[in-house]
Amino acid sequence: MSGHADENLSASAAGTIEATAAAWLRQKQSDWSESQQRQLDEWLAQSQAHCVAFWRLEAAWERSARLEALRPLSQRVVVSASRKPFRIFARVAAAMVVVAGLGVALTLVWPQPSDAVYATAVGQRKHITLGDGTRIELNTNSVLRLVSAVAERKVVLERGEAFFDVTHNAERPFVVIAGAHRIKDLGTKFTVRQNRDNLQVALTEGLAEIGPIDGRGSDHSLVLKPGDVAIASTRGLAVVRRSADEMSDEMAWRRGMLVFNHTSLGDAAAEFNRYNGAKLIIADPAIAGRTIGGKFSTADINGFVEIIQKLLGVRVTHQGQDFVVSH
């Protein structure tokens, strides 16, 4: 019952609290650290009024994720307003200048109103079929931009993970740009995943070539065969071989599943956190190193928590909507 006096203090009390709640929710959309989460939890714990204001805004914002379905690609609100691509796409731009040097018209490369952008919210997946029959499945929390170009079909994976089943056309190769790398299809099914500090390409069928975005010679690129998983970082490019079963586990997200096989709890938690608003926080490094196996629905964070409680004898407590795992 505490706090009533505060809440009734002034006519604008609710408005002030709501403004603060909105600022929290906004910050939570981008880079969000554990210490920020702690601060938010503290703020929420201060008063029930803080909780209801935040819960309400968050619930509405989560509902608004469905807005995406409304988006008419032909008349997007966006780019027409003012085009200032220089600073924004600095990273892409740096690479593109090189491409331009290679003779590709610059206009093909800048973001244009005709670009189509597909995005998924956390926990969402999306199927896209392009005009040429190429199928793309976008995984959770991902952004993919289609850049129309004459010489090649180009898409930019700006964030997240996508599976590509490419309709091969030798005349117009299909190229995926991700970070500093480009993956060129040679008749292919493959997945591209952007991690924080590396890029992972898993190929299930056909052939694809991965190399640096600036198109340096074949010394710097690799041809991937079925079963190959390439990991590219700023330090280099490595390829590992996976069995068909392991490859199928790799692609389990396409069925809405996560498959763990001697996976550390830390990695498993990171996987779940890609798909869910509620986060799993492993409070103790010793626990994060313990390994588990099993198949889980990407959304079934509760089921996973229940199982690790039983299986590993760890303690799980709630912190806001999140789960904190400790001894």
Binding site: W61, L67, R76, K84, P85, I88, A119, V143
Partner: peptide, 29 residues
Amino acid sequence: VLARIEGLSGRVIAARLGISESAVSQQLD
């Protein structure tokens, strides 16, 4: 729309619209 549908960050939106990041924050709130 840029934040929710396109999934862009405040910084990117600010650059794209040619307004300050704090203005983007205010609008988003």
